[in-house]
Amino acid sequence: MSLKRRNMLGLYGVSAEEITTVLDTAESLKEISARPIKKVPTLRGKTIVHFFYEASTRTRTSFEIAAKRLSADTVSLSASTSSITKGETLIDTAKNLLAMSPDLIVMRHSQSGAPQLLARHIPCSIINAGDGAHEHPSQGLLDLLTIRRAKGRLDGLKVSIIGDITHSRVARSDIIGLNTMGSQVTVYGPRTLLPPAVETLGVSVAGSMDEAIHDADVIIMLRVQQERLTDVLFPTLREYAQRFGLGLKHMKAAKPDVVIMHPGPINRGVELSPEVADGPWSLILDQVANGVAVRMALLYLLIGPEAS
């Protein structure tokens, strides 16, 4: 199996067939993480650069573990250790990296479109590990894998995404991927955190928390970022938690087989009450485990022995 692409910059334009290929590959690679010796030689001799212009703990760790389980050599650069602070442009930094012949660059950047810029200038494979408020395709794919494993399908599901849609690259990748796979997506959040023309993303907008929850098969809660408070996008965390947080009372109105997801890290007591986060509905830790498998699949499909 392989993908007909060199890069994974976003789920926009990625076909259902390609997504299925990634998810199926991830399923078959999951077993490696359960072995006593969690390593296969598939990517031996390949070099992967993790190029993080923006702080990240879990995504970077997940990518590094994925690469190491496939025996790739990895190098990490973060904003504090690279030449970014010396005023070098993104393209210059990338060209310098390229001169060291990496096979793949995993990049996170605070600016939407930065991976597209990189891809226009350098010929090696690129995985977007999150660009601004644009996309985070590996998170989208791991969410799809998590839902597919829990529900046995993606087609015809009702998925509600609740919280800060405007600034969320996870929301965009989830919405695009879910739409491609035939799910129906509803969003809900404070009006200040729903982007202009949000329905053009292919979602319907719920009018209340109850409406968002009552017939959802899957609920994805998004993280509230503290800096949105200083932007005056909502009044207080207290009111946010009361009006847009998911608590036990909501679970009574939800479908009995509903599942709860969250890209992490969780603000416990804000968007998610501890009882819900740790309850039987929660797939949050499955998401983390599936993240390693999906990233292994992407690496394998983009630069593995069968990559085009």
Partner: peptide, 15 residues
């Protein structure tokens, strides 16, 4: 420009 394209690209808009 603030609108569907900015929303899809994840770029802050200018209404």
């Amino acid at each position: 420009h603030e609108g569907p394209t900015a929303t899809a690209l994840g770029l802050p808009g200018i209404p």
